[in-house]
Design a protein around this nucleic acid. Structure first.
Lengths: 205, 205, 205, 205
DNA sequence: AATGAATGAGGTTTCATTCAT
DNA sequence: CATGAATGAAACCTCATTCAT
C-alpha cells in the first residue's frame, strides 16, 4: 500500500516535471533561450513561480533536465544501433536515419540544447556535454571496426566521428530551414553515401 | 576642409568601433558570452560605458557588428577560393585549409558567433546568419561545378555544402578541445579526403 | 470520561509542542536563527509543515514560546534562590552559580533568545523581554535587601542588578568562546567576589 | 588638478556612502534589522535600489560598513583612554564615561550592531566581532596593569574585562529603557565604584 | 488531525540604457 | 564628444502560510 502510494506519487510527480520541461521546450522553440525565465515557465504551465522550485532546485537543474530528457531517447536509440551486429557502414547509415526521424519531430530544440553555452555548461561545466562525448566515442568505435575489418581506410576515427555527427546536424539544420524537407530516407542516404564512400578503402594505391 | 574633417572623424570613429569590437571578442573568448556586459566592454577598451553608445545604438547592434566583422575576413577569403579557377575538389580542400588556419587563430569565438541565439538573432532575425547562408551557397555552387564537370556524383549540392562546412566546424571543435591539436594540414587533408572521395563519381557499378 | 479525553489530549498536545520547540532550539544552536524555517523545523521534528501550524498560530508565536520555555527553568530557579532566606551576598553568589551551570548546558541558545530582535520582539513588543525585566527586578530587590541590612553601600539597585546580570552573561560568553572553560565555580566566584566587594560598605572614610 | 578632482569625488562618494549608512541606522532604530531591505534603504535615502549597489557590493558589505563606522569613533576614543598614562582605576572610570556619552547619542543601534548575528557574522564569521575582541583585550591589559601595580587583586583580567564592558552595556540598556536617564556621570561613577572596589586589594586576609 | 503541494509576496542582485555635466 | 552616476525593469530564489485531501 505504501509502495503503491509511492508509485502513484512518483508517477504524478514525474508527470508534473514533464509538464514543466515541455513548457521550457515550447518557450525555447517559440522565443529562444532568453525567453526562458522561471516566471514565464510557470505561466506557461499554469502554476506559480514557486511551484517550479518544488520540482527543480534551480534554473540550471531544470535546463539540465530538459536537455537530458530531450536528448535521452535519440541517444539511446543511436547507441543501440551502434552496438548492434550490423556491418559498420550499415550502422552509420542506420544511425543517420535514426537522427533524422527523431529530429524531425523536435526541430529547433536541438541546436539550442546541443550548442548553446548556457545550457551546455551542465552545472559547472564538470562534464561538459557528456552525451555528446559519448556519442562521438561510440561512433568512433564503429568507424574503427570498419577500419579493422578493411571496409574503411585508416583514418582518425575520433575526428571522422565528429564530422559525421556534425554533418548529420547540418542536414538537420537544412531540414529545419526548408519549408518542405525531402523525405528522411533521402537525406539519410546522402550522408551515408558521402561518408561510406569517403571512408572506403581505395582500390589500389 | 569640411571634407577633411569628416574623413578624419570617420577614420577615428572606425578605429574606435574596432577597438570596441575587439574588446567584445576578447571577453567572449576569455569568459564566454555571459560576461559581455556593456560595463565590462567599456572597461576592457578603457572608455566610459556611455561612450559605447556613441558608436552602437544598443548591445544587439554591437554584437551584430562583432559577428559580422569577425567572420568577414575568413568569409571573404573562402569566397575568393571558391570563386577561383581551381578544380572543384581542390577548391574544397583549399577551403578547409583556410578555415583551419583562420580558426586556429580565433578559437572559441566561432561557436559563439555562429550558434548562440543571442548573437545569431541578428536584429530581429531578418537575415538570420546572412554570411552562413552565403557561404553554403558558394560552396554548393562549387560542388555543382564538380557535378557538372563529372568529378562528383550527382548530389544535392546544398545539403552537401552544409555537411562540408559543419564537418569543418566539427574538426575545429575537436581541435579546440584537444590540448595539442594535429597540424592544420592533417585535418584539412582528412576532411578533403573524406568529402572528395565521398563525392567522387563511382567507377561503374 | 470527557475529562480524561481532554487530559490525554492536552498531555499529547503539550508533548508535541515541546518536541517542536526542541527542534527549534536544536536548529538555532546548530545553524543559527536564519536556519529556522518552518520547513526545517517540521523536518527536524519529523512532521509535516502544516502540522506545525496546528500547534502555533504562526512563526512568531513559536519563537516566543521557545524563548519563554527555554528561559523558564533557569528563571524560576534563580527566582527561588533570590526569594530564599540566605543573606543577600550569598544569594547573589548562588544566583551566579545557577546561571553558569544552566548556561553550560544550553550555550549558544541564550544570546539568541535574549538579544536578537526577531525573537525578542515578542508579538508586537508588548511585553518586551518580560522575563528579563522580572529577573532584574528580583535581583534589584535582593540588592536593596543588602543595602537596608547594611551589607551593601547605597546604590541604585536596579542598575546594579542589570550590571550583575550582564556581567554573568559576559562570562557566559567568554565561556562559549573558549575551548576549555574554567570550572563553573571559578567563574561564579569571580563574579561574586567582584560584585560583593564592589558593593560592600566601606569601613570608615 | 587631477588630485583635486579625485579629492572632491572621493569626498562626494564618501558623503553618499554615509547617507546610505545613516538610512540603515535609522531603519534599524525605527523598525529593527528585519526592516532593512535594500529597497527600503534606497527609499529612505531617496535613491534607486540599484544605486545602493554602486556604493556597496552587496547587503552584507553595507551592514559591515555600518557596524564598522558606527563603532569606530567610540572604539578609538576608548582605545586612546586605555593607552593613556592615567592610573588603571582612573582609566576604567574614564572609559565608562566615554561609553555613556557616546552611547547616549546613538542609543538603540548598538545592541543590534554588537549582538545581532546577522550583522555580527562579518563576511563569513572570519573575524567575528573584531572590534569587540580588541576592546576586551585592551581593557584586560589595563586591569593587568592594576594587578601588577598592586591596586587590584589578582583576577582573571580577561574575564573581568568582559564583565566590565557588558556591565557598561547593561547600564546603557537601562538608560535606553528609561524615559529620563540619570546624568551620565552618575552611571559612570556607579560602574566605576563597583568595579574599582570590587577589584581592590583587600586589606589583610 | 495531519499532510504537503501550491502559492505569491517579497528579498537580493544585475545590467542595459539614459542624461546632466 | 565623453563621462559615469543613476535608474528601474526584470531575473532568480525563499519561505510563511493556506487549503484540499
Amino acid at each position: 500500500m505504501a509502495a503503491r502510494q509511492v508509485r502513484i506519487r512518483t508517477t504524478w510527480e514525474s508527470y508534473k516535471r514533464q509538464a514543466i520541461q515541455e513548457a521550457v521546450i515550447r518557450l525555447i522553440c517559440r522565443e529562444g533561450l532568453k525567453s526562458v525565465t522561471m516566471e514565464r515557465v510557470a505561466q506557461e504551465v499554469g502554476i506559480a513561480k514557486g511551484t517550479v522550485y518544488l520540482h527543480y532546485r534551480d534554473k540550471q537543474e531544470l535546463l539540465d533536465a530538459v536537455k537530458e530528457s530531450a536528448l535521452a531517447p535519440i541517444m539511446s536509440k543511436v547507441d543501440e544501433v551502434l552496438r548492434g551486429s550490423d556491418a559498420p557502414d550499415r550502422k552509420l547509415r542506420a544511425c543517420a536515419a535514426e537522427y533524422f526521424s527523431y529530429f524531425d519531430e523536435h526541430r529547433d530544440l536541438f541546436r539550442v540544447l546541443i550548442y548553446e553555452r548556457e545550457v551546455t555548461r551542465v552545472s559547472g561545466s564538470r562534464y561538459q556535454s557528456d552525451r555528446y562525448r559519448h556519442l562521438i566515442q561510440e561512433t568512433a568505435r564503429v568507424i574503427n571496426e570498419g577500419v579493422r575489418s578493411g571496409v574503411f581506410r585508416d583514418v582518425d576515427a575520433h575526428n571522422v566521428a565528429a564530422m559525421f555527427i556534425e554533418s548529420t546536424f547540418a542536414l538537420m539544420n537544412q531540414r529545419l530551414r526548408s519549408e518542405k524537407p525531402a523525405p528522411v530516407e533521402i537525406d539519410a542516404t546522402l550522408i551515408g553515401d558521402v561518408f561510406i564512400h569517403g571512408l572506403e578503402r581505395r582500390r589500389k594505391a
